[in-house]
Design a binder for these strands. Structure first.
Lengths: 113, 113
DNA sequence: ATATTATATTAGATTATGCTAATTTATGGA
DNA sequence: TCCATAAATTAGCATAATCTAATATAATAT
């Protein structure tokens, strides 16, 4: 995925909110729908865009489908998101030595370090 | 300017190329036109978008108009741009203690530190 | 099997975006 | 003044993006 594509994907309200939520941890479509107040088809379409770009992955569990950030991209996305806040400017991001699973609450932890 | 707006502005090929060039230093429209091979009206329109968002500033000098990154936003943009490259992940960006003019070649310098 | 819940897909309308061509405005020189 | 150069603006078009409503699919429970 090109840098430009990532920027474009994050440059729409709904997708940015979805990604911000997923960076905080895996979430079902149903929960996203409730938390973000985005209608189901819109949500499914935008999740589809993010999935097509490889930015998120999905996992079926019974009736529901759970989305989370793709491991390959979560760090990049975290860097970009925190780069947007100048308050966060002086914090360096840890290099990729920390290779444990980062599917949940990673962004929040970095912010509160 | 909202984070989303910055991401959207950077999420188009021409605007991203323009910003990448301006982060390297001030540039006239004419020079941008030649360097980026973007037609004059397109260039002027996209520069207008960037200017309207406060991301770039312009300065008239004789017949030509010179654009540069807005001081208020250059560091944020640099952070976002370098956040896109994982190779650059571990480099921290200097806090704003360094308050000298940063209108030229700032991004290149950071990359080659 | 049928119904229920969750998600995806399709179709369609509306709006936004990004380009080109043509024109206009601004500046400086002959 | 008249011309040349640089940049901005306008108009128009083609395409992309984004939403809603309706429908289809998937999984589960009764």
């Amino acid at each position: 995925m090109l840098a430009e594509d990532l920027l474009r994907l994050l440059g729409s309200t709904n997708r940015l909110r979805i990604v911000e939520r997923l960076v905080a941890g895996e979430c079902s479509v149903k929960t996203l729908e409730a938390e973000l107040a985005i209608r189901q088809p819109t949500l499914s379409q935008q999740l589809g865009e993010l999935r097509k770009a490889g930015l998120v992955i999905d996992r079926r569990e019974a009736q529901s489908v759970h989305y989370s950030m793709a491991p390959d991209h979560i760090e990049q996305v975290q860097r970009v998101l925190s780069a947007l806040n100048s308050a966060d400017a002086q914090r360096s991001h840890k290099p990729k030595s920390e290779t444990r699973p980062v599917h949940a609450a990673q962004f929040g932890r970095v912010l509160s370090d």
